[in-house]
Design a protein around this nucleic acid. Structure first.
Lengths: 196, 196
DNA sequence: ACCTGAACACCGTTCAAGT
DNA sequence: ACCTGAACACCGTTCAAGT
């Protein structure tokens, strides 16, 4: 995890990891079955960092967990891509169960709860991945944006230029994640209230 | 694109692609600068398959484009992962501009339109990726679900078991994508109406 | 129980040489 | 202008051999 945090997922090869740890490559296979197994384990390690889902009102519990997961994925930028491809370990399974429990006490019809669960988790992973593909950490951000816009003619893409400029100038997008999340949660709550 | 559709992205190496085409590896570098360049080109090719954003009412235009993009990503399962990591080519730039145009005529305040744009695109990419990580095409679906559940104790994760079972038994999740999309679009529309 | 040298079957990419 | 043989610097993984 420390290696991936420091050098990124692309730089993580079994050989480099072994060298960093002071061993030879093949020694790693005494501790993990394969590279995939290693990645699965890494992912569950960071999944365990997310604060447990609270026992209070469902909306706050779901929101807090979504925010906590998003923050964790921002701390470990390599984890978002794996989140989708790796099977869940114990930590993630536990979080999923707790989140389902929160939805269960929402009063939503079971099928709506089911879909709501997906809408929320989709938002978390989709948003974080999308953000990471564009964000580069404040300072380089502006430069990257300028470089990008330089390759895109203004006359042809005026709104796109403006959109990117809004990104740079901020702080419009201070809490974009929360904005989308509230759209989903408010929509669900409206259904819960109407049905109850 | 045909190769990736048929064999998946993991199987696509420059060497195998060259063999499929009846050439040697190195010949490919007369036509693309690198493998990354190849992938960027492939992605814009499939991006061009998405029907153009319509000129009508903003909500329908945004919805249709979201649905069209989601369908394209399901036709080319390898494309979702690249969607995030590759820079947009001409086809995608054009689609982004058109989608921004639809938001521009929504009457939403500029910052809400900006956030709405992201909420929608996040939903599309997040949902498709999430779905692909779990869906395996109806037939294998049930078997995969059973295998997965076999590794997860029922007593510890009762709601998770039920959730997966709902996936298998369907057709609860007939239009999960649309459900989440409408939550977002309805929320935006409410803001547009209240503000106008 | 844990480490390791040698080896295998792969990668993407460069470069000089061909036609 | 396009193709290609040889080579380079990498990969993940296995297996037999060591302590």
């Amino acid at each position: 995890v420390a290696f991936a945090d420091a050098h990124g997922l692309a730089a993580l090869s079994m050989r480099k990891l072994a060298r960093e740890l002071g061993f030879e490559v093949m020694s790693l296979y005494n501790h993990v079955a394969s590279k995939d197994d290693l990645l699965t384990g890494m992912l569950d390690l960071v999944a365990a960092e997310v604060p447990p889902v609270t026992h209070g009102p469902w909306k706050a519990a779901v929101r807090d967990h979504a925010v906590g997961t998003s923050q964790m994925l921002q701390r470990h930028p390599w984890a978002g891509g794996l989140w989708i491809s790796q099977p869940p370990g114990p930590a993630r399974l536990g979080a999923m169960e707790s989140l389902l429990r929160a939805f269960a006490r929402s009063g939503l019809p079971p099928d709506v709860a089911h879909r709501g669960f997906h809408a929320v988790t989709n938002h978390v992973v989709g948003f974080t991945l999308q953000e990471q593909s564009f964000d580069l950490g404040a300072d380089q951000m502006e430069q990257a944006a300028e470089e990008f816009l330089a390759t895109v003619p203004v006359e042809e893409y005026p709104l796109l230029h403006q959109h990117v400029r809004e990104h740079v100038e901020g702080p419009v997008d201070e809490d974009e994640f929360g904005f989308g999340l509230e759209l989903i949660l408010d929509g669900l709550e409206r259904i819960a209230v109407a049905g109850g």
